[in-house]
Design a protein around this nucleic acid. Structure first.
Lengths: 190, 190
DNA sequence: AGAGCCAAGCAATGATTTTGCGTTAAGGTG
DNA sequence: CACCTTAACGCAAAATCATTGCTTGGCTCT
């Protein structure tokens, strides 16, 4: 998140932020991404454009904030009883969400309006959190688990790379194959 | 590349494209990325702003085109005599270039102004070409080689992911470690 | 409850983007 | 080689968007 100065926790500031974010989501759905402009969003949100410019700097940064919010997972990864199943299920869902037209758009928006890299960092933080949840659960069951970064490097990163740079090579089996690679070839030896 | 309609190959159109690209590079160096505007670029290039708007649509798309051009490798990957050395050397150089402030900026620009994914596709095509050159040379020497996509998925993708989403975890040893992973664990069995 | 301060509103100004129309130069054809 | 067609450029006006100084309103803390 990056509202210009630090946002006051409650009251009017919070209401403005809320209504602006809502306006962006609604207009994005109604009129499509490329038609969004700051004055349009401001009108829908019931604020003046200068409020948006002062708080977010420009449209790119506002869209970046909204995108990160939409990329936040809504629920922790499912627990299916084994590391293998949990990772496969999570990877397949992740790929499906992220590779959809909407998902790709959010990722690109999040990257585009992010001067200091904090929004992009937040995206990877969500993925790291999900992976660590799965790995911790498996460890508790007594399973051998790979390092978090092995999963990030060899499951998450390849999916993201194809989503951003090589669209069209994406199906659920790809996600499962990547998990298999980590599972059989990068797992610490028992 | 994505000039609006198909660019006429020679003559005036080509000259305009050339001078606009040059203007972007010069101004980027002189005044810094965030100060670039279409009218400024147009003035430097000796064209009217409307020419740029008509040909590229907006600043984002123009910068995307210029960025892809700057991401094109200038020379084929070095031949050091073995697959392992070639891959390590190439990966280290790639990481160094791409993770520099300028490199990251170009990558993000290339992604940001790229409605149909063709510029991003071109970026991965450059990497694929370099990797295939290295692999083909090694195969000719009689070495066992991994599939191109194994290198893309487990060397290039992890580096790119960290560059975009997790800055600060990047050093040359990381590139060598990724190569080692592919080399020892994903190589087809002899 | 009152004081201080931060953020939002308003409005004027300046910059950028869009558009219609006339002109020029490429590329093709007789 | 001259002519014809058409895409692309220049110019200028109009519309939209971005910026900024100043004022006003509403949190937060004492």
């Amino acid at each position: 998140m990056s509202p210009r100065p630090s946002v006051r926790p409650g009251g009017r500031s919070a209401r403005v932020q809320q209504s602006v974010h809502t306006a962006v989501r609604e207009l994005q759905a109604e009129r499509g991404r490329p038609d969004l402009t700051v004055p349009l969003i401001a009108a829908r949100a019931g604020v003046t454009p200068s409020t948006i410019y002062r708080r977010w700097g420009d449209l790119k940064e506002l869209l970046s904030d909204v995108a990160v919010e939409r990329l936040r997972p809504e629920a922790p990864p499912a627990d299916l009883g084994s590391l293998r199943e949990d990772l496969e299920h999570w990877a397949v869902s992740f790929l499906e969400e992220m590779s959809s037209p909407a998902g790709r758009c959010y990722i690109r928006d999040a990257l585009a309006g992010d001067p200091d890299g904090s929004n992009a960092g937040q995206c990877s933080a969500y993925a790291i959190e999900a992976v660590e949840t799965i790995l911790a659960r498996a460890a508790q069951r007594g399973e051998h688990v790979p390092p978090t970064d092995a999963v990030m490097d060899h499951v998450v990163a390849p999916m993201m790379y194809r989503i951003l740079f090589r669209q069209g090579l994406l199906d659920p089996q790809y996600a499962r194959d990547l998990v298999a690679t980590v599972f059989y070839r990068l797992m610490p030896l028992p």
